[in-house]
């Protein structure tokens, strides 16, 4: 109980987000209307993804320094869950865009960079699959992980500068800017960001524990 308090917190946060996000009053904004509720489910996916991928590169660097296969296992599992969050982010965004932009994909720079970012991490998984030797696999994929994260940062900074984004809050669109968010919405949104991020972290820790057992059984650690 003492160790797992944050798991209970996560569950209660997410229950609150689902109930409050779907049922509470939402502010009426032009174009957005009721779709503003996607804020509690779509945006937190990106927060979760960036945090998980950040943890992944940190453990990749740790592996390169220490050579401990435990760090590599953590790095790859954080990346895996981060990719799932990215996919969920893209799909929830596409559902939302169907109703506000009239098409699931409309050459929005943020959509494009998210898609390319996912391509980079899919390549990471394929790279891992193509190497047999455990040590070589860990070392080579850690190096690629570091490059991938920097490429992701470059994407997030560069592509949006080329054209205006359609996203709310960009290019004169009505948005979830600080002054647009009313207090009720903000409370749910911040809870959602924390809740979903912690949920992602929780899933990753479970997968890491499985991986550790597997490593122990094969006597790698």
């Amino acid at each position: 109980m003492r160790k797992s308090w944050w798991k209970y917190l996560t569950v209660s946060k997410l229950l609150y987000v689902i109930v409050a996000g779907l049922l509470f009053d939402a502010p009426r904004l032009n174009i957005l209307n009721e779709t503003i509720r996607a804020l509690h489910f779509h945006v937190p996916m990106w927060f979760g993804m960036v945090l998980l991928l950040l943890l992944s590169i940190i453990y990749a660097i740790k592996y390169l320094i220490s050579g401990n296969l435990k760090h590599d296992a953590m790095s790859v599992e954080f990346a895996n869950v981060g990719i799932v969050f990215g996919l969920l982010g893209i799909f929830t965004g596409m559902i939302w865009a169907t109703y506000t932009w009239n098409s699931p994909w409309s050459n929005d720079p943020k959509q494009n960079s998210a898609a390319i970012g996912l391509l980079i991490y899919f390549a990471y998984i394929i790279l891992r699959g193509s190497i047999e030797d455990k040590m070589t696999k860990a070392r080579v994929s850690s190096v690629y992980n570091v490059i991938a994260f920097f490429a992701l940062i470059a994407l997030l900074f560069i592509l949006p500068r080329l054209t205006d984004s359609l996203h709310p809050g960009n290019g004169g669109n009505p948005g979830f800017n600080a002054y647009d968010l009313d207090n009720e919405l903000r409370k749910v949104f911040y809870t959602a960001v924390l809740g979903w991020t912690m949920f992602g972290f929780w899933v990753a820790t479970l997968r890491i524990r499985l991986k550790f057992i597997e490593l122990k059984r094969n006597e790698y650690i």
């Binding site: 080579v140 690629y144 470059a154 560069i158 080329l162």
Partner: peptide, 27 residues
């Protein structure tokens, strides 16, 4: 260098590099 450590097929080189060079290419 990374691809040469792996099975080293040309496809791997392409899928690893294309998404990474997109920012530079766009710029």
């Amino acid at each position: 260098a990374i691809a040469s450590k792996a099975s080293n097929n040309p496809t791997l080189m392409a899928i690893l590099s294309f998404p990474i060079v997109i920012p530079v290419l766009m710029m």
